[in-house]
Write a protein that binds this DNA or RNA. Structure first.
Length: 260
DNA sequence: ATGGTCGCCATGCGA
């Protein structure tokens, strides 16, 4: 079972790239962030034609998430239950596996903008709500996978230039603590289960030839609960789509699970 | 020190 996450930065612009990527990388589940389109504009037919089911939570201009999958999922949840938020950032679905249900959460975590911004306050409050909800989810679903754009680089090794970035948004200690709190629920950053190339990143700014210089951050993650960690045999960042014409600023991250 | 690129949509704003 292959699970992937990709912030596409507008599905309108990136639809063909997503379809091409799925054709070359036939994953079972793809979590998409930053649709930047309303529900009525979601290209369901294109995914259906490619052999994928889809659920989505869209919004005008900003945010928006979708889960695209080979098999239809069940028990869909849209938004963090009990957390009032007009911003569409969360979708959850359950998929069958040989060992029982796998719960997949697709998350587009807030960016935060800067440490002195209201959006930073919102980011930390959002993470707290996420923490509270995931504490319940993992109880209900022992096989839990939380994929998405976390907008947090967990450690300095996930930052191309830690000295320059120190204390900035996306790497600040309160943000890292918020991410660690999710891990403390019993989730693992699957990327670090395996030996990885040095300077592995999942996002590169569009400016200043950041991708060419590999001036990036690793902010897109696949978190797995313990029963799924046992079945995880790989987690890779696919930099290939970042080389496309008109690329997303993020690369997909793919985790491979092998059930007994 | 400042702004640099995208995508939204038509202007600045968010990332």
């Amino acid at each position: 079972m292959k699970l992937a996450t990709w912030n596409v930065n507008s599905l309108n612009v990136r639809l063909q790239q997503v379809l091409d990527w799925l054709a070359a990388n036939p994953v079972d589940v793809l979590c998409i962030q930053e649709l930047k389109l309303t529900d009525d504009k979601f290209p369901e037919a294109a995914f259906k034609e490619a052999g994928y089911h889809a659920v989505w939570a869209g919004q005008k201009t900003y945010n928006g998430v979708a889960i695209v999958s080979r098999m239809p999922g069940t028990s869909m949840v849209r938004n963090i239950p009990g957390y009032e938020d007009p911003q569409q950032r969360v979708l959850a679905l359950t998929f069958p596996s040989p060992e029982g249900d796998v719960r997949v959460v697709c998350a587009y975590c807030p960016n935060g903008q800067s440490l002195d911004s209201d959006k930073y306050v919102y980011k930390l409050a959002w993470y707290e709500a996420m923490h509270k909800w995931l504490a319940e989810e993992i109880k209900q679903y022992p096989r839990l996978a939380v994929l998405g754009d976390y907008n947090i680089a967990p450690a300095d090794e996930d930052v191309h230039n830690p000295e320059k970035w120190e204390g900035q948004v996306l790497v600040s200690e309160p943000e890292r603590a918020a991410l660690r709190a999710l891990l403390d629920l019993g989730l693992t950053d699957s990327f670090r289960l395996f030996e990885q190339p040095e300077k592995s990143f999942s996002w590169w700014d569009y400016r200043q030839f950041a991708f060419r210089r590999n001036a990036g951050l690793r902010i897109d993650h696949v978190l797995l609960s313990a029963p799924l960690v046992k079945r995880c045999v790989a987690c890779v960042i696919d930099k290939e789509p970042r080389r496309n014409e008109q690329p997303s600023d993020h690369a997909p991250v793919v985790a491979t699970l092998e059930f007994a």
